[in-house]
Nucleic acid binder design. Structure first.
Length: 229
DNA sequence: GCGACAG
DNA sequence: ATCTTGTCGC
């Protein structure tokens, strides 16, 4: 079976959705859902990707955890090699993201990623897949749910999301927004810690600051590119 | 079997 | 996600 048409690129002929799903399930066994990061966080990154006709543009921005100011950011342009297929987002966004991240001069303590972590049918959303590749802590932050059942909201304004008796993430209600954001463990972090970090960057907004900045920069880069095309 | 489905 | 103007709300 071939992936449904999406985006400009076609998946390679040799590609199979079934094999990709099996690979996700195998890789998910290596995901660590406990804290393997410093107690004192200094730098947090945000990663985002945007697309033109046939190019992917990725931005990674690193914020100072204390001051919330931008420490450094990098941009990478790569050729788009894979279409968007629901449940297979990482196959599209991993390479462009990796390209920008490897340009960083510092190693952030944790990466906020635009998409799901283990809140995924095969427990391997983009954030988890990226974490495994980087061997670094990652957190999935999605604007819409992908799978799981939303439970009751608690005092801290988040509701657990479960699937087959597993807590796979949380719907987090922020200050002035009716719509929750969907937070899940990417890699090398606990859900509790992931929520604390996301909340730290969510003051007054729905989307945490590292991702807002990354999205703003990536859009700016795309506009620049499209002007000369 | 059918539909829904992160970005 | 992207293509797009005005417009409603804080």
């Amino acid at each position: 079976m071939s992936p449904r048409k999406a985006g400009r690129r076609k998946a390679p002929e040799s590609f199979s959705v079934e094999k990709a799903h099996a690979a996700q399930l195998a890789m998910s066994k290596h995901v660590i859902t406990e804290d393997h990061l410093p107690n004192e966080i200094r730098h947090v990154a945000g990663v985002d990707v945007t697309y033109t006709k046939d190019q992917s543009i990725s931005v990674v921005v690193v914020l100072n955890h204390e001051s919330l100011s931008i420490n450094e950011y990098k941009v990478a342009y790569t050729k788009t090699k894979f279409p968007y297929v629901p449940t297979l987002l990482s196959f599209r966004e991993l390479h462009p993201s990796f390209a920008s991240i490897k340009k960083l001069e510092q190693h952030p303590d944790v990466f906020l990623v635009d998409g799901q972590g283990i809140m995924h049918q095969n427990r391997l959303g983009f954030a988890s897949h990226l974490g495994l590749v980087l061997k670094a802590p990652t957190i999935g932050v999605a604007k819409r749910p992908l799978t799981g059942k939303v439970g009751e909201y608690n005092e801290a304004n988040w509701a657990p999301i479960t699937d087959k008796n597993d807590i796979i993430g949380a719907a987090l209600l922020t200050e002035r927004s009716k719509k929750p954001i969907y937070v899940s463990v990417g890699h090398m972090i606990s859900l509790k810690r992931a929520l604390d970090i996301v909340k730290h960057y969510t003051n007054d907004h729905r989307i945490p600051k590292p991702l807002r900045i990354a999205h703003r920069l990536v859009t700016k880069e795309r506009r620049k590119l499209q002007k000369v095309e």
